Simulated assay, not measured.
Amino acid sequence: MAGPRHVLVTGAASGIGAGICELFASAEGARITAVDVRADTLADLAGRLRADHGADVGEIVADLAGADAAAELLDRAWRDRGPVDVVVNAAGIYPATPFLEMTAAQWDRVQNVNVRAPMLVTAAFGRACAAAGRTGSVVNIASGAALRARPGAAHYCTSKAALEMLTKAAAVELGPLGVRVNAVSPGFVTVDSAANPVTEEYADAVSANPLGRRGLPLDIARAVRWLAGQEAEWVTGTVVRVDGGASAGTTALPLHWKGTSEVQTA
Score class of each variant (00 low, 15 high):
A51L: 02
D36E: 11
D56F: 06
R48F: 00
L49E: 01
D56R: 08
A46P: 08
A51M: 05
I32D: 03
D40V: 13
D44T: 14
R48A: 04
L45A: 03
I32N: 00
V57W: 02
R48V: 04
G29P: 02
V57T: 01
D52N: 03
R50T: 14
A51H: 08
D36S: 13
R50Y: 08
H53N: 11
V37S: 15
V57Q: 06
R50A: 11
A39C: 10
G47I: 05
R50W: 07
D40R: 13
V35H: 09
R38K: 13
A46Q: 00
R48Y: 02
G54L: 04
A39I: 09
D52I: 02
D56C: 11
D52Q: 11
V57Y: 01
L45D: 02
A34T: 01
L42R: 01
V37H: 12
I32S: 03
A46W: 06
G47F: 00
L49P: 01
G58R: 13
L45Y: 02
G58C: 14
R38N: 15
D36P: 04
V57D: 00
I32R: 03
G29W: 01
A46H: 05
R48N: 10
A46Y: 07
G29A: 07
G29H: 01
V35Q: 06
A34L: 04
A46M: 03
A39S: 14
L45T: 01
T33C: 07
A55K: 03
A43G: 10
D40H: 13
V37R: 15
A30Q: 04
A43T: 15
D40F: 11
A34P: 05
G58P: 13
L42Y: 07
D52K: 09
